[in-house]
Amino acid sequence: MNDIRHCPMIETENLTKVYFNNSHPSVQAVKDISLKIGQGEIVLISGPNGSGKTTLLSMLGCLLNPHAGTIRICGRDVTALSQKELTEFRLRNIGFIFQNFRLLDSLTVMENVELPLVLAGIRRPVSRDRAAAALEELKMSHRANFYPNVLSGGEKQRVAIARALVNDPAVILADEPTGSLDSNAGQATVQLLREASRKRGKTVIIVSHDERIRHFADRVISMEDGRVKKEERP
C-alpha cells in the first residue's frame, strides 16, 4: 500500500466550503482541509451529523465547487474545470454509490448498469456486453431483466456497485453504502468495495457512521465542525 500512496490519486489543499443564506455566509461546512489519498486506497470518512462529511464527498466527487482551495484528481485540477467539463470528468473518472441505492425504477437492472456507458457514448452491443459482464462479476446476472423495485436491499446495492464500476472509473465514492442494509448485506457490500480496490486498484472513499467499516479501511479520517479532527490507520 505504501508505494501506492506515493502517487496521490486525490489531493486537496486548504479546501473550504461555505453555505450562504440570502447572500450571507451561514455555515462554513468544510474548513481548510488538505488531504492526499493514494491510488487503490480505501479511506473511511466518519464523524457526527453536520461535521461536513457529505460536503467533502460532494466536492471530491466534483458535484460541488469549493469556495477556496484546490482539488486534484488523477493529477488534474478539477476546481479549474467548467460545469460541462466536470460532467464529463465525473462520467469518466468517478463512480458513485449511495445509501438509498438511487437506481432508476423505470429502468431494468441491466439498463441501470448500462446507463453510464450510454452516457459515455458507448453503443450497443458493446454497452450491453460490458453491463452484462459487470452484473456477472457481482453475481446479479439472474436479475438483469428485473426492475429494481423487486430486488432486496443487498441486491440493489450490488447493482449500484456494478453501475459505479462499469465505466472503469479511477475513484469510487460511497455515501453510507451500508446505511440501508442488514449486517450481512452490509458486510458483503463493503467486501465488494474492498475487492474493487484491491483487484482493480480503485481508490475508494466511503462516508459512513458504520463502525464495522473501519476494519476494511486503510485509513480513517474523523471530521468535526468541518475540520479533520483525527487521521488513523486501523
Binding site: 466527487g61 458535484l63 460541462k84 460532467t87 458513485f96 438511487r102 432508476l104 452516457l119
Partner: peptide, 16 residues
Amino acid sequence: REDYALLKAIGARSRF
C-alpha cells in the same frame, strides 16, 4: 428530482 440529480451526478450532459 433525485433521479434527475442522479443522472446529472453520474455524468448525464445537459443535452441528454
